[in-house]
Design a protein around this nucleic acid. Structure first.
Lengths: 217, 217
DNA sequence: TTTTATAGAATGAACGTTCTATCTAATGGT
DNA sequence: ACCATTAGATAGAACGTTCATTCTATAAAA
């Protein structure tokens, strides 16, 4: 880790966008768009996609409503851009996992599970994800974006399981791993008192089950 | 199963409400309320809590907007009533599990998982749950209702694991089981092509892991 | 001097809620 | 049994607000 501290979304830029080839004007435009996306994400987490009005978003972004429409053609376009950005962030996180030595992958994943349960660091992320998922449920355009990115992530992760851990049925393992992690994140809402001490041994046992070839294979 | 076919919510009535002691007027009132709740649930799944207006709900319920306000003091009260009703339904479903002989419980749960993945029978239910969860995230009143009911359900289920299957750490097992099921339901949205054949063996292995005492205990 | 950035007012629709009016069902006194 | 009176059921218009979006105008940059 030699890189300087970067915000969540500068990181995304590194992966996706060729900043080097951007003119000054394009960079400024991109920065403004990110400013809107940040503000909108915060508002949407707080009030929901349909509960948060453009006025609130503009206030949070510290620009006028009209100005926002200079960068996004509609509210739905903002939502779609947020989903895109978050999905790319997720891809990145899995890419980090890929860089790890094989014998550290399981430990890293258990660490992540602990983060979800015990710290509030991912609370915003989880909340936004939930909001996105609820929207995807009723908006086919959002659903399509989500599915496309999920496909990429599944492929990435299956590849880790297959090539780095040498596992069969990598797709099924991926699916259940993702169920478990996604489910755990939602559980925190329904049971805020969740204590990690009791959970971890069992969780580790499940991970062992999913990250090792069964005897009967 | 000798009982006649009943709607999802008549069932709820059986458990919770003392229909016998209700006057005719009270019964009619309750029926109207349910009529609103049914319509509102459908609208909320389709457009989200804040995306669906009272006009749409009224149309679906085949009554006037003013009439709805005769039975519910606000839109939020409708949301709260829906959350209550759905939570009671969930309690009921776990109660059915409780009635099963010990050696059939695991199989029944695996069946349920298959239902989630393969049939659309629970799709409406899952969608509504997701919507509720998203709302709970930003509305503390809804969150409180959800947490209260979840506590009841956790207790019920831990009790099954503890007394009927003789397991230690029943709370932790419950928590992970619920994570897994809840997570699986959301995965269907992100990966609609999900095939159950590949999933089931691994899923069974996880269930075995969670529903049996580990060797090292 | 022509784009681009920016703010803010204008617009028309939709929102949740309340108000008013009518119609139906129950109640009570005789 | 019958009318008077009250309570509840129901519809729809009305209200004030907020919504997403567009329009107009000005300031800055290229």
């Amino acid at each position: 880790m030699v890189r300087r501290n970067m915000s969540r979304h500068e990181k995304v830029d590194l992966v996706q966008k060729a900043h080097k080839t951007m003119t000054g004007a394009e960079k400024r435009r991109e920065a403004r768009r990110d400013q809107v996306l940040d503000a909108a994400s915060a508002c949407f987490v707080e009030h929901g996609f349909h509960g948060a009005g453009m006025a609130k978003v503009a206030k949070k972004a510290q620009m006028s409503v009209g100005h926002i429409y200079h960068y996004f053609e509609s509210k739905e376009a903002i939502i779609a851009a947020i989903v895109d950005r978050e999905s790319e962030l997720a891809v990145e996180r899995f890419a980090e996992l890929y860089a790890l030595p094989s014998d550290e992958i399981a430990a890293a994943m258990i660490n992540r599970a602990e983060d979800i349960v015990v710290t509030k660091s991912d609370a915003f992320q989880s909340a936004l994800n939930l909001e996105i998922q609820a929207e995807a449920q009723r908006n086919p355009h959002i659903a399509a974006i989500l599915q496309e990115h999920d496909k990429k992530i599944r492929g990435l992760f299956s590849n880790i399981l297959n090539t780095k851990l040498g596992l069969t049925d990598a797709d099924a393992r991926t699916e259940l791993l993702m169920s478990l992690f996604g489910g755990l994140a939602s559980r925190v809402l329904r049971n805020p008192g969740l204590k990690r001490e009791k959970l971890i041994p069992l969780f580790q046992s499940l991970m062992h089950n999913l990250l090792n070839e069964p005897a009967n294979a």
